[in-house]
């Protein structure tokens, strides 16, 4: 595993993507710090980092786009498959290499509160809690980007799709308010999700019967629940959507709260998408 980790790290650093991401994040966070804290005389570093989290939308796709897609494109994945290692080890090594790259700017950012401290009072605990949450958010987003990269052979498609997904996640809480919150509307929303699930099952299994039955069972269950207690559906789709708003979960930290649920959410998102990446790689062998 360490061999793959070292190789990945070297690829990121030699191949510029790592350097670009580190430089970009440091430059932009530096600008935010100057604008908010030094020029704006705003005492809270948490707010600065929270605002800077938008930078991930641009930085993460660059970092993750080639992680798996490029291996598929150059057929070097055949080497990975033939190594005496489990796919989980290989994917984790790739993942940790990218997280290590992200840790570089986050590590440098840790000095900023100290620098600011020489100009006035800085709440160090909340500032560092925020940096930790910022780092874990990045780690979760890297897992998502890596998974998207494992779905395609093209770096460009991986980057564009990742950018779109992160942008959507960033705006999610805003989008959630646009969606009608009434129970029937939510039921309709869930029925569309059931249809989507059936389509995905059809694509993955190429078996129409299974797909149709999955769709019908899901839809029937939803209608049944609706018939029993329609109030469960009140506001359900907006709530579901805002649950996926990963960026929003930094808000408590910006207000000086240490929100453990947010950290757990980031870690579990990362674990889920690492798992999905492993599955996506394994699936390729079964095609």
């Amino acid at each position: 595993m360490s061999a793959v980790y070292k190789k990945e790290l070297r690829t990121h650093l030699n191949g510029m993507t790592g350097a670009i991401v580190v430089a970009f994040l440091l430059l932009m966070v530096g600008i935010y710090t100057i604008v908010y804290n030094l020029r704006g005389m705003y005492p809270s570093f948490e707010t600065t980092v929270s605002a800077a989290s938008f930078l991930y939308v641009l930085a993460i796709p660059v970092l993750t786009m080639r992680s798996v897609a490029e291996e598929k494109h150059t057929k070097t994945d055949q080497l990975l498959y033939s190594l005496p290692m489990s796919m989980t080890q290989i994917v984790l090594a790739k993942y940790f290499a990218m997280v290590t790259i992200l840790a570089i700017p986050c590590g440098v950012i840790c000095f900023y509160p100290l620098i600011l401290g020489s100009f006035g009072n800085v709440r160090y605990t909340t500032a560092y809690a925020m940096i930790l949450a910022f780092f874990l958010l990045g780690a979760a987003l890297i897992a998502i980007g890596m998974f998207l990269s494992s779905l395609t052979e093209s770096q460009v498609i991986a980057a564009v799709v990742c950018l779109a997904v992160l942008l959507l996640l960033n705006f999610m809480s805003g989008l959630a308010t646009l969606i009608p919150a009434s129970a029937p509307a939510s039921l309709a929303g869930f029925l569309i999700l059931a249809l989507l699930a059936a389509v995905i099952v059809r694509i993955m299994t190429k078996n129409t019967t299974v797909a149709v039955s999955v769709g019908v069972i899901l839809a029937a269950a939803m209608v049944l629940v609706y018939a029993i207690d329609a109030s469960l559906y009140e506001n359900a789709v907006p709530r579901l959507l805002s649950a996926t708003a990963l960026f929003e979960r930094l808000n408590p930290f910006a207000q000086g709260l240490f929100d453990v649920t947010a950290l757990v959410c980031y870690l579990s998102t990362a674990a889920l998408f690492v798992f999905l990446t492993v599955q996506s790689m394994e699936k390729k062998r079964w095609n």
Partner: peptide, 12 residues
């Protein structure tokens, strides 16, 4: 030890 049809090399 396996050499696939297309050698799995990292160009960089």
């Amino acid at each position: 030890g396996y050499l696939p049809e297309q050698p799995p090399l990292y160009p960089d």
